[in-house]
């Protein structure tokens, strides 16, 4: 009893354990799993990253002509790194950085904006498929 009171008194003069966040930056360990970064030049558009992603945070928009457009939702991502492991060109086309994601603001449209994009991507695939079938049948005619 006396000892714990003595300990408690000693604790008054110890430095604090907590960090004055956000005024003081947090020290992240080396190899922290942060945002996924992408380089369009190296990508071969195989869609593997899109397929393995558990929450579906990477989506490609498929225009009728030209190359696909990559989009990534940093707030939906769980930073698991599956996409990087699936990518045939890891570190070149897709890699995991050590940057920590900031919280989303309303303007970022982390949810609503993404739903719109999701629907647009789905639609673009269907349109693309339909156009392809149409082209084929025109060729065969």
């Amino acid at each position: 009893m006396i000892r714990s009171m003595f300990e408690a008194f000693k604790n008054l003069f110890k430095p604090v354990h907590t960090v004055n966040y956000p005024a003081t930056e947090l020290v992240l360990p080396k190899g922290y799993r942060g945002l996924i970064e992408y380089d369009k030049e190296a990508c071969i558009f195989c869609d593997k990253c899109e397929k393995v992603c558990p929450p579906g945070a990477i989506l490609f928009y498929q225009p009728l002509e030209g190359e696909k457009e990559y989009r990534y939702n940093p707030w939906l991502c769980i930073y698991c790194g599956e996409c990087v492991r699936a990518c045939p060109k890891p570190q070149e086309a897709l890699w995991q950085s050590e940057t920590k994601q900031q919280s989303a603001l309303k303007e970022d449209g982390a949810n609503e904006g993404w739903f719109v994009w999701e629907a647009a991507c789905k639609q673009s695939r269907e349109d693309f498929k339909a156009a392809k079938i149409k082209n084929k049948s025109e060729e065969s005619v």
Binding site: P29, G31, Y32, R33, I78, Y79, C80, G81
Partner: peptide, 8 residues
């Protein structure tokens, strides 16, 4: 693991 709570 690279993350504090969700180790994955």
């Amino acid at each position: 693991s690279g993350n504090r709570v969700q180790f994955d």
